[in-house]
Write a protein that binds this DNA or RNA. Structure first.
Length: 491
RNA sequence: GGUCUCGUGGCCGAGUGGCUAGGCAGUGGUCUGCAAAACCACGUACAGCGGUUCGAAUCCGCUCGAGACCUCCA
């Protein structure tokens, strides 16, 4: 199985063989959400992408420490005006809530969504506000090394100076000269030496709610320090993988690299992984554009663009059907296709139970399995993996249809293949099954009606048998006839 | 304006020099009292124009179109 695992590294812009710093151990850091609103479909993408990365490394036997932060402070919304307003604080004022109340509410909501999507909880979920001291220490160290300067209670990173000895822009492919030319909106009053210098610490205006004491006066941490402070705290000065959305490459991750290099003398991250965006009508779904659909809206179908509700697993499967580095375009047709496809996949798994093994096997399970591993080893190519799983589905159905045979050993391997790739690594769940098993009485009643229908059929009383089936269908119970009798499921 | 990415059949989406991606939808057939499910078969797609090559959707150039980042965004 485990051949080379290739990972596309944003830093080098090519696929590289993954080599851990410590054998069989993985340090993984992923940028989590800023909790000032409900999570939308876009938030599900990195969560699911890196959930699969997490799951796969664990499957390969790695001891993984997966750190995914919660950003609960910072991110100025109005930098141009000069008096930056904290997103969390702004929301707090609007809703008349304590900032921490806002944070708490949306953190819980995020956790509920993630659980529904079967996204595993990370090993550590640190919060920015819980690491103010670490961030201050980082900032102090950067000042000491001479790469940051203080001005009126603000601390800025000196990009120009840094760039003299290092390369600012190596992750995003930018050059400082270009940045200089292309900076819009010159804020003349700013104390920045250069417009592209970024804030490490911001002085809090009197009305600013979130504030902490610091050597530079009362204020709050700037945009890009939290991930460096928390990442290196829990994973070490150097760790394996840092992930996040593509939109974070510049300036966020670029600034992280600069801080790491300035502070530790080296880039903390070996492999930078970035998931692409989800688009809607070809345009990025995002908070600022206001064209997002929240996960709860997907689950309930309560949004004008949604023709129906889509279950968490449908959403998960939909996202996994695209490779993480490409965009995925949202659409009802595409979501419905995912729903149907997932159902087919799950039905095949259930159908495995019904297969009677033969003496001879015409199925090459080892090959199917190898193809699945090959897909994952090629930069987590889940669509190829899923294509292989559908090959497996076809195989299973062909066995049931009597076209090919399988022996008991092969049958076990098939089941195992599903257990490993569908459930363990892709993290899918069989939702239909849960629904049917949670009410015993309902099940018994349906069984009874179904049996009555079988009797009617035996008497060629088609009117009665069709009536039973039609009415059950209207109630959302699907009846399927089989050779032995019938099957049912609740939609 | 600068930097970059992409344009695949009705929809979503892989692939990246010659070999079927896959799913959904559609069509025909088998099975079934009918249906559902399943199985079998089918569509001959790679924005346009040139070039390189024995051969390109895949490499190069140009044109058109879409988008991302440059400000917070997953």
């Amino acid at each position: 199985m485990a051949d080379k695992l290739l990972i596309y590294n944003t830093l080098t812009r090519k696929k590289e063989e993954f080599k851990p710093i410590t054998p069989n151990q993985l340090g993984l850091y992923v940028c989590g959400p800023t909790v000032y609103g409900e999570a939308h479909l876009g938030h599900a993408r990195p969560a699911i992408t890196f959930d699969v990365v997490y799951r796969y490394f664990q499957h390969l036997g790695y001891k993984v420490r997966y750190v995914r932060n919660i950003t609960d402070v910072g991110h100025l919304t109005d930098e141009i005006a000069g008096e930056g307003d904290d997103k969390i604080a702004k929301k707090a004022r609007i809703e008349q809530l304590e900032p921490m109340e806002v944070v708490h509410r949306y953190t819980e909501s995020y956790h509920e969504n993630m659980k529904a999507l079967n996204v595993l909880s990370p090993s550590i979920e640190p919060r920015a506000t819980g690491h103010i001291i670490e961030q201050q220490q980082l900032i102090k160290a950067i000042i000491e090394k001479g790469y940051a300067y203080e001005a009126n209670g603000n601390v800025y990173f000196d990009v120009l100076k840094y760039n003299k000895s290092h390369e600012y822009g190596k992750l995003s492919g930018r050059k400082v000269e270009d940045l200089f030319e292309n900076t819009r909106e010159l804020d003349g009053q700013s104390e920045k030496r250069n417009s592209y210098d970024f804030a490490l610490w911001k002085n809090a205006s009197p009305q600013h709610i979130m504030r902490w004491p610091s050597p530079w006066g009362e204020g709050f941490p700037g945009w890009h320090s939290e991930c460096v402070a928390m990442g290196t705290k829990y994973l070490g000065e150097q760790f394996d993988i840092h992930g996040g959305g593509m939109d974070l490459i510049f300036p966020h991750h670029e600034a992280e690299i600069a801080q790491s290099v300035a502070c530790f003398g080296k880039d903390s991250v070996n492999y930078w992984m970035h998931n692409n965006m989800i688009t809607i009508n070809g345009q990025k779904m995002g908070k600022s554009l206001g064209n997002f659909i929240t996960l709860n809206e997907f689950f309930t179908g309560n949004h004008e663009l949604l023709e129906q509700a889509y279950s968490p697993m449908t959403v998960r499967f939909f996202i996994l059907q695209a490779q993480y580095r490409g965009t995925v375009d949202f659409g009802n047709e595409a979501l419905k296709a995912a729903e149907k496809g997932l159902e087919r996949l799950m039905n095949a798994y259930t159908a495995l139970e019904k297969i009677a093994p033969a003496k001879e096997s015409e199925v090459d399970v080892a090959l199917l399995k190898q193809n699945c591993y090959n897909a994952l080893n090629d930069d987590f190519n889940t669509p190829i993996l899923i294509a292989n799983l559908f090959e497996t589905v076809k195989t299973i159905n062909s066995i049931i249809a009597g076209n090919i045979t399988i022996d008991s050993n092969g049958l076990n391997e098939l089941k195992q293949l599903f257990d490993v790739f569908v459930f363990e690594i892709l993290g899918l769940k069989n939702e239909a099954h849960q629904a049917t098993s949670n009410n015993e009485l309902t099940g018994k009643l349906i069984e009874m009606l179904g049996q009555m229908r079988i009797d009617a059929k035996a008497n060629k009383d088609w009117a009665t048998s069709d009536k039973i089936r039609n009415e059950l269908t209207a109630m959302g119970v699907t009846i399927k006839d089989t050779k032995e009798g019938f099957e049912w499921e609740i939609n």
